[in-house]
């Protein structure tokens, strides 16, 4: 009986509601069954080549065969364990974060932000201690996407905090420099920045020096995102009531002490949703790097679909990539919503 009442209240409460419900149900009827049959019922999941794809459904064999490349790029097969190791450590630390007490949390945090980057670079690039060197040229796929996103966010955050504080500074030089820096990077599209980093930046270095393209791209993305993060954090700084600054000052704390101990902890808590949004946007912008020749996930899919043995399977490739991006971004946005709710209630 409850179900009937619920449907009546929520789906059929008045005439235009009812109409809406019927229209939607009709749209479902004409779109979902064909979609499902293409994706699942008529699809081929297993096989080794395009010939195995019979029927009218999706040819998921394409994905299955190329999965390693989509995930790791052109990284040599026998060295893939290094990437796996780094990610296992990463997720293990993140997972452990939720189960340990505050003291260990601090240690884990420091490990993750300071030690782990160098460890990861060593694992991925090699060249020392007997680990075979793998050029950044062959890094690609989902691995590259995650690598760039995580590194950019780790480095753009402190820069963003300094810029936000700089923009509110009383010293005119610092303030104008911060404003100029932030507005410069915010006014230009990311693609321009990437292109300049990849193509034009070498012009500004002494001839003969060669800075790795991936490094240039990461620097470019980091500086770009730091401007956006700075604005988000500035919003948080402005939201702190003046009384907090007053109280800190009246206790004798100077500019840096009051900011580090009092203002920033509160401000950063407020801006978590904004920071999460920026991170998600950064993640969604990573496909742009394929324009400058770095083959992250979308780039690998593009490459795969033009392979002569696998022509005509663009749809399957893009749907797969879409699902992967969707899972990551959706999970991140739900998590940030949960964080927001948690922090609202704890205060």
């Amino acid at each position: 009986m409850n179900l009937v009442n619920w449907t009546r209240k929520n789906l059929f409460s008045n005439w235009h509601d009812t109409l809406l419900t019927f229209i939607i149900l009709f749209l479902f009827y004409i779109s979902i069954p064909p979609l499902l049959s293409w994706m699942f019922f008529d699809a081929t999941f297993f096989g080794t080549s395009k010939k195995d794809c019979s029927g009218t459904g999706a040819c998921w064999v394409f994905i299955q065969v190329w999965l390693k490349r989509f995930t790791y790029g052109m990284y040599p097969n026998d060295q893939i364990w290094r990437i796996d190791l780094a990610f296992i450590i990463f997720f293990f630390v993140i997972g452990a974060y939720f189960f340990v007490n505050t003291k260990i949390k601090k240690i884990l945090f420091i490990f993750l932000t300071i030690i782990f980057p160098f460890l990861a670079i060593f694992l991925f690039h090699g060249g020392l201690f007997g680990l075979e060197e793998v050029e950044t040229r062959v890094w690609g796929g989902l691995f590259l996407t995650l690598f760039i996103s995580v590194f950019s966010i780790i480095f753009c955050f402190p820069i963003g905090v300094l810029l936000a504080m700089g923009r509110r500074s009383k010293l005119p030089v610092i303030r104008y420099f911060s404003i100029g820096f932030i507005e410069l990077w915010r006014g230009v599209p990311l693609i321009t920045v990437l292109f300049m980093a990849a193509v034009m930046f070498p012009v500004f270095l002494p001839s003969g020096t060669n800075l790795d393209k991936l490094v240039r791209v990461i620097i470019a993305i980091t500086l770009f995102e730091s401007a956006y993060i700075a604005e988000v954090i500035r919003g948080g700084l402005q939201a702190i009531p003046k009384g907090q600054y007053d109280a800190a000052n009246s206790l004798g704390m100077g500019y840096w002490k009051s900011h580090i101990l009092i203002i920033l902890p509160q401000a950063l808590k407020i801006v978590i949703p904004g920071v999460a949004n920026t991170f998600i946007a950064l993640f969604k912008d990573t496909p742009l790097i394929l324009v400058v020749g770095l083959m992250e996930l979308l780039g690998m899919v593009n490459m795969a679909k033009t392979n002569p043995a696998w022509l005509g399977l663009a749809t399957e490739g893009y749907v797969f990539a879409a699902i992967v991006y969707f899972i990551f971004c959706f999970a991140m946005s739900r998590y940030s919503l949960r964080l927001e709710k948690q922090l609202k209630t704890s205060n």
Binding site: P241, D246, A247, S250, L251, G252, K257, I262, Q266
Partner: peptide
Amino acid sequence: VGMVFQQFNLFPHLTILDNCTLAPIWVK
């Protein structure tokens, strides 16, 4: 010189004890 404000201005992210020990530790 100590000051007490109309809006209290306690630091919301610290316990009462931490509010009181903060300045003696970091300033004194």
